[in-house]
């Protein structure tokens, strides 16, 4: 009997050991990851590569400092339309900040949160680190955080925003496709632009390729779609790039707004699926009393524009990460709908 019990206890102990070992706890402090040489000024180490993307998501005029960190000698795989296939152990790092004075960025930034997406054997894990008031470090928080932020914008205006760092579940509502968490930004068509590195300016994809961080890179590189705020592109292409970056993370097949049947990813070509003469399904007062998501030629009658203009959480789109109007994008979408037939 005694022997049986000791066996049992051993067995139990073993199981507890195994089960506890399989949970890798994330670091409590951002500094513990050693991504930065100078964390306060967001200066990365040699192994942490800064990047930017051609068509970013609007998040209440916050600045975003993006980096990727990959395990030594590992390499990601290039894709034009999809996010690069990153190796296990890769971390995508994004710090959200507001400038003190946008007219003079040397005055510095108020850092709010740093979001990580860490790739492990089972997929991507989202984490958010909230910066302390002293701006010396950021600390893991699962429930998100509210900041009341003010800054001086480009035109000298003082601006205010209730900035909401998302909770871990909210990360999923934008980053989840077919029940899997995915990064959104670093795909080929978003990365083919130049970045000013400490050693000089270079094309990001070529730079990554040269550092053996990225393989299967085509030559020559396929051109990017339009950049939404670059007027050298035609209006339709700019609008579609903007809608892809700002809406399609939810409004595509398999993503969190799939039930709407209204998809804005850049590959979509079906006009009713794109919202043209499509009536809303579950918009509630988000419809604003309007009949169609896009009423071609009539921006003021289009729900799409109405919800971009709104800052009411029960109406506005996107649902998350926006409290202010994106003033620069509204004329673009207005003009785009006006010229649709």
């Amino acid at each position: 009997m005694v022997i049986k019990y000791s066996k049992l206890i051993f067995f139990l102990f073993l199981i507890i050991l195994i089960s506890s070992a399989s949970y890798a706890e994330p670091h409590k402090q951002l500094s513990d990851y050693n991504f930065f040489k100078d964390i306060k000024n967001q200066v990365p180490t040699e192994e942490t590569i800064p990047y930017k993307i051609a068509n970013p998501l609007f998040s209440d005029y916050s600045y975003k400092f993006r980096f990727v960190h990959m395990p030594l000698n590992s390499v990601a795989e290039y894709s034009y339309n999809n996010v690069f296939n990153f190796p296990v152990g890769a971390t995508i790092i994004k710090t959200f900040a507001y400038p003190i004075d946008e007219r003079d960025l040397d005055k510095g930034f108020q850092l709010l949160e740093t979001r990580l997406l860490i790739k492990d054997e089972n997929g991507w894990i989202p984490l958010s680190y909230i910066w302390n008031n002293e701006q010396t470090n950021a600390f893991l928080k699962y429930t998100g955080h509210t900041f009341n932020v003010s800054w001086v914008s480009n035109n000298g205006q003082k601006k205010y925003v209730r900035y909401r760092a998302p909770n871990v579940n909210q990360c999923k509502s934008c980053h989840e496709i077919n029940n899997k968490i995915q990064p959104i930004g670093p795909k080929g068509r978003n990365m083919n632009i130049n970045f000013v590195y400490p050693h000089g300016e270079a094309n990001q994809i070529e730079f990554w390729h040269g550092k053996n961080l990225l393989n299967n890179v085509p030559t020559p590189l396929k051109e990017n779609p339009a950049i939404w705020n670059d007027t050298k592109y035609e209006i339709n292409a700019r609008a579609r790039s903007y809608l892809d970056a700002n809406c399609a993370h939810c409004h595509q097949k398999g993503a969190s707004a799939s039930n709407s049947g209204f998809y804005l990813n850049i590959e979509e070509n079906n006009s009713s699926i794109l919202g043209i003469y499509k009536t809303p399904v579950a918009a509630g007062r988000g419809s604003g009393g309007l009949k169609y998501i896009i009423d071609p030629g009539k921006p003021v009658d289009s729900i799409l524009l109405y919800r971009m203009l709104s800052t009411d959480p029960g109406v506005m789109m996107p649902e998350l990460s926006r409290n202010l109007q994106h003033e620069e994008a509204i004329p673009l979408i207005r003009e785009w709908i006006s010229q649709l037939k």
Partner: peptide
Amino acid sequence: NQKSGAEGLLVT
């Protein structure tokens, strides 16, 4: 006094 979120409770 809800300030953010498109719904009260979301279950996924």
